[in-house]
Nucleic acid binder design. Structure first.
Lengths: 229, 229
DNA sequence: ACGAATGGAGAACGATCGTTCTCCGCTTGG
DNA sequence: CCAAGCGGAGAACGATCGTTCTCCATTCGT
């Protein structure tokens, strides 16, 4: 879920990782060296490369030189696009949050009935888990790695999970649960657990297991105003 | 992030848990400096300090000097006890696995009925989450931080989760689930999710939420040989 | 076309970290 | 009391990393 070229018309699905073939880019310069590129293009490529590398290898394991190589920009350009590695890490997490939430929302939006909307969450997870470069949740990983030493990273991770929790709360309320907060929390546990289990290969078919569990909890919690489904 | 966070994570900023609390009995000499200590005592203190620091701050964020200070041993002693940081990390994970599993087993062993044994798992989690220094699962954290770059760490994390999954499988079978593997996976998702949610403060009362969800799943899955409980 | 500005390439710098080495005091055996 | 050795304290070393600086080719305004 990392690399996408600048010209992708996404179909609301989790895109697969394409290798770093940045041959023909939007820059017209046909230099054999690193082409002279536009400022916005540089920012895009840097964030793209950083996202792919940070996610794949962990944040501390990736050096700025490595990002420079993958992005195909100069170190000077890198630092005038993002003034520090910390800033780049924050941009990485923010961008990741936006893409992930958008993808989740699109999946959920396709379903109308509350039950189907909950199912869609885990369908999204199943699709995500199937991507070639899947390596768990960027925010759980970043939080575990830098949470205690970097308040911004901890805040970004909490904000991401808060957004997820809020969406699940909406779904739980739509489903007419007697205690929407309780159901939302339980769905959150299933989502987080599925992500972790998928990343570590612990459970078999974690998304499907989580989905069936969610449906069971949904049925158990359906005690007030079941608005269809 | 190196230059900035260097100030916040200063050496010796850990608590006053120093050498003098241990060496009163095993080492008779009351030296004012670091006492001359036994080899086994050194190993114990080193592993103790490493466990506390690695867990609290992350593995890469803790230097060997910091471990030396916290353990109250010399660097020479440190390296002749554990030949490298990698070895110390492995020992840390192994020790933590043993302690955690033992604590879980003890909690579960106190209950006889299958339902109570499942409940005991989440009672154990609740107790753990309430500890002052709780910071999530060492293995999830280590896996997220070093999984892609350190095969031993990845293997240790997978082994830990495999052990947990096996125990949950036993509980699921004892509970007479129609599909014990499915229930075990679902319980695993709840446990992992609760740990992550507790670490990040996402859900309210994650252990209790997970326990009620587990009981609901247990009831839903109880379709063969309900061995009275 | 020429001076100035821009940007790429990468060396350089300072800090940190894992690991080893040196120095010296203390202990111990005779 | 002395020689030998063990162990603590910490300097030193090499590698890495984040960040800055230097050098030079290219580009652009006029």
């Amino acid at each position: 879920m990392a690399t996408q070229s600048a010209d992708t018309t996404r179909r609301g699905s989790v895109d697969t990782h394409s290798a770093d073939t940045h041959n023909a880019d939007t820059c017209g310069a046909d230099t054999t060296r690193r082409g002279r590129i536009d400022g916005d293009e540089a920012r895009r490529r840097i964030l793209d490369a950083a996202e792919r590398l940070f996610y794949a290898q962990g944040i501390q394991a990736v050096g700025m030189d490595q990002i420079r190589d993958a992005a195909g920009v100069s170190l000077k350009r890198l630092y005038q696009s993002y003034p520090s590695k910390d800033a780049l890490v924050e941009a990485y997490l923010e961008h990741r949050d936006r893409r992930w939430m958008r993808s989740l929302d699109e999946h959920v939006a396709h379903a109308a009935a509350p039950r189907d909307r909950v199912t869609a969450v885990f369908g999204f997870l199943a699709e995500w888990f199937g991507t070639a470069d899947f390596r768990g949740c960027s925010f759980i990983n970043a939080f575990g790695e830098l949470g205690p030493t970097s308040p911004p990273v901890a805040a970004a991770a909490r904000a991401h999970k808060s957004g997820l929790r809020e969406r699940l709360g909406t779904l739980a309320a739509e489903a007419g649960a007697a205690d929407p907060d309780a159901l939302a929390d339980q769905l959150l546990l299933l989502v987080e657990g599925a992500i972790v289990a998928a990343a570590m290969g612990t459970a078999t078919g974690p998304a499907e297991r989580a989905r069936s569990a969610a449906l069971a909890l949904l049925s158990a919690a359906r005690q007030s105003a079941p608005s269809g489904g």
